[in-house]
Design a protein around this nucleic acid. Structure first.
Length: 300
DNA sequence: TCGCGCAAAGCAC
DNA sequence: GTGCTTTGCGCGA
């Protein structure tokens, strides 16, 4: 069996993306601003605290997101999140059949997915060949995992949280019986593709394999229908999969989503618009939401 | 038991 | 009244 990396139809490569150090500064800015949220720190204060200049902070944000830090930070406030929810799709009620077929069908063109059989799940990945590798992406060092059927996992490596070893253990440990084959070059192609969502086209859909329990797969499928730049709540997802009281279980399932970003777990928030937890760090969740917003503002 | 929850109730401005 | 915290319930693994 060959494990082929996707070919980027646009011919673009990773080096057209912002350098990884950009995300690091963005992430630290987000962390600083979140910690001091009540004190409403200024950018000058943030820059001073992070040991950089305002001009550098400005330039970095523009390179990374295409927005000034000020606009970007506005985009990740709770008020903005509330607007995402309120203006959001008719996601909030399962009765909106029309709404369902609209956006989800649209998204289906971009991401083809299939669920792994329960048997394969029980065997803990036995017989699966998992290609995997690391590459730099807009949200830091990224671990991609794939089978011959498509992308199966996406995760992040943070130095302060155990780095590559931890990310690998976290992801490959879910399928301990699988055969793992390292291929960083192929991983780089996956990562480049994933973080250029405008390249997910009908004629070349991003292929994705969902490996989980029945309930988890239903949650992830529903999450896939939430469009770029929009948001939903755990409660709404619960209603939409026909389990209106299972909001908390939905939250747990969202948290077990193996394909971060592609299955947009960052678009799920609490009913108030507050961001709740995120397996790969709240700052990253916030960064993803802001980044999507920025892409939308650019007209992308 | 534990979680990326929710809504109502309680309490403090 | 608004906003923040606490409480009881809830579900699937």
């Amino acid at each position: 069996m060959t494990l082929q990396a996707p070919i980027d139809a646009a011919g673009t490569t990773l080096d057209t993306l912002a350098p990884p150090s950009d995300y690091d500064l963005v992430r630290r800015t987000l962390e600083f601003m979140s910690e001091r949220y009540r004190a409403q720190p200024t950018l000058a204060e943030a820059a001073a605290r992070l040991g950089t200049g305002e001009a550098h902070l400005e330039a970095t944000f523009r390179r990374w997101a295409g927005l000034s830090p000020k606009l970007f930070l506005q985009a990740v406030t709770i008020d903005h999140a509330r607007r995402l929810l309120a203006g959001g799709l008719p996601l909030l009620d399962a009765a909106h059949e029309l709404g369902l077929s609209g956006p989800s069908r649209l998204h289906d063109l971009f991401v083809r997915h299939e669920a792994m059989s329960p048997g394969a799940l029980k065997r803990r990945g036995e017989g699966l060949v998992l290609g995997h590798g690391f590459a730099d992406g807009p949200f830091g060092r990224t671990l991609a995992i794939w089978t011959d059927r498509g992308l199966a996992g996406l995760a992040f490596s943070d130095e302060e949280r155990g780095g590559d070893a931890h990310a690998l253990q976290d992801m490959l440990g879910r399928w301990p019986a699988a055969e793992a084959r390292r291929d960083d070059a192929a991983a780089a192609a996956w990562v480049a593709r994933v973080f250029r969502p405008d390249s997910w086209r009908a004629e070349a859909p991003l292929r994705v394999v969902l490996i989980g329990t029945d309930f988890e797969v239903r949650v992830w499928e529903r999450l896939l229908a939430v469009p770029f730049g929009r948001a939903t709540t755990y409660g709404a997802l619960a209603r939409e999969i026909g389990a209106p009281k299972a909001a908390r279980a939905v939250g747990a399932a969202v948290g077990r989503n193996p394909i971060s970003f592609v299955v947009p777990c960052h678009r799920a928030m609490g009913s108030t618009g507050a961001l709740t937890g995120y397996h790969w760090g709240l700052a990253r969740k916030r960064a993803m939401l802001g980044w999507e917003y920025a892409m939308g503002e650019r007209g992308g």
